[in-house]
């Protein structure tokens, strides 16, 4: 292959790489723009913020309804609620794996007008 045709080949290779990179990176950037738009709609943000308010409300409820350092057994109909209670009680109450080791039973129950439709139910064991 002559020097000239090698040079032209290099130019074609450069163009191919630049086009491939621009298209690939561009598609990905486009995806992110679309994603950002989808999570910043009024409806989406309203739902997200409501979830956040609910979480903050449960966090505060645990601290207002239980004494600091209380050993608790988290229970409930949904395992997601049980786990959320364990998470949000951190630094205030001490979750126990066994009910027998706990002083308090803590559950999330459906309720109107409290933490976004949920309320904290605390029972002495």
């Amino acid at each position: 292959m002559g020097g000239r045709s090698m040079g032209v080949g290099k130019l074609v290779g450069c163009v191919a790489i630049v086009v491939a990179a621009l298209v690939t990176l561009g598609l990905s950037v486009h995806h992110d723009v679309q994603f950002t738009a989808s999570v910043t709609t009024q409806n989406y943000m309203a739902r997200s913020k409501a979830d956040m308010r609910q979480e903050q409300c449960i966090y505060s409820a645990i601290r207002s309804r239980l004494p600091k350092g209380a050993t608790i057994y988290t229970d409930g109909q949904f395992w997601t609620h049980v786990q959320r209670l364990d998470e949000l009680s951190t630094t205030w109450a001490v979750p126990q794996a066994n009910r027998a080791d706990a002083q308090w039973s803590v559950t999330l129950v459906p309720a109107h007008g409290q933490c976004g439709g949920l309320a904290l139910k605390v029972t002495r064991i």
Binding site: C14, V15, I17, V18, A21
Partner: peptide
């Protein structure tokens, strides 16, 4: 993606150098 980006930069510079 970073590898692709690096080759793109080299390709642009390479083409202009050529």
């Amino acid at each position: 993606y970073a590898e692709l980006a690096v080759w793109m930069v080299i390709a642009v510079e390479g083409a202009f150098t050529w």
